[in-house]
């Protein structure tokens, strides 16, 4: 009844289904300092419209979706241009969207400008079948460990990284744990052969 599968435990079940989501492109004016920032970037980087897939302004934050082969040049300009000056990259974080075919793995870079007190987020989508992305360690040395972590957890291979090895998981660990298709383990308990099922297999509220 009610489309339930699994244990049949429907407590709290409300029948909503998770859907894939992706933010649409925002239109100008973006508001806040985002218009200035976009203008400055366009001025300093003539290939702006070609390299940037879309600009998303959501909840007071600016996200630039960048084509993956242009990431390095855009990042370099964001760092070096006096009007932009994003001196700090606060690392890289992966997000796995298995439903977005051809764009399964996203790498997200939050940048911070100490000079102008501004923030921006860069996002790059790459296919799972070819998970290569340029390393930004050359621009921000502090991205070293963050890229290793993202490789460890998502399997994104950062080309040009000085030593891309696992960092949190053991060296011989199989798989990349933060991917959505990587299950959480259950807990075997020694009582009449029973086990506690993995969280992903317990009842879910969608």
């Amino acid at each position: 009844m009610f489309g339930v599968s699994g244990s049949g435990d429907t407590s709290g079940y409300s029948g909503l289904v998770r859907s894939t989501f992706s933010a649409g492109s925002s239109e100008r004016p973006y508001g806040s300092y985002f218009d200035d920032l976009a203008d400055d970037l366009e001025r300093a980087y003539p290939a702006f419209s070609d390299a940037i897939e879309k600009v998303v302004v959501d909840r007071g934050e600016l996200t630039l979706f960048i084509k993956r082969d242009r990431l390095f040049e855009v990042a370099k300009i964001l760092r070096d241009e006096p009007t932009l000056r994003f001196e700090m990259c606060l690392g890289v974080n992966g997000v796995h969207y298995p439903d977005e075919v051809g764009r399964e793995l996203h790498a997200v870079y939050p940048l911070l400008s100490l000079t102008h007190n501004r923030r921006i987020r860069l996002e790059v989508a790459i296919p799972d079948s070819d998970p290569h992305l340029v390393s930004l360690v050359e621009l921000w040395a502090g991205n070293n460990w963050h890229e290793r972590e993202t490789f460890d957890m998502f399997g994104i291979i950062f080309d040009g990284h000085p030593g891309l090895t696992r960092i949190l998981m053991p060296d011989d660990w199989p798989g990349h744990p933060q991917r959505k298709d990587y299950p959480l383990g259950g807990i075997p308990i020694e009582y009449k052969g029973a086990t506690v099922p993995a969280p992903s297999e317990r009842r879910a509220y969608r």
């Binding site: 998770r18 894939t20 796995h96 460990w145 963050h146 933060q178």
Partner: peptide, 29 residues
């Protein structure tokens, strides 16, 4: 230092992705 949280939601009752930009992790480099 800067403790950053990157949250992604897909509209459900659970987070889609939670990532902590831990200052200890970064600074230890």
């Amino acid at each position: 230092g800067e403790l950053g949280v990157h949250l992604v939601s897909d509209g459900g009752t659970r987070p889609y992705r939670v990532h902590f930009r831990e200052p200890s992790f970064n600074n230890l480099q």
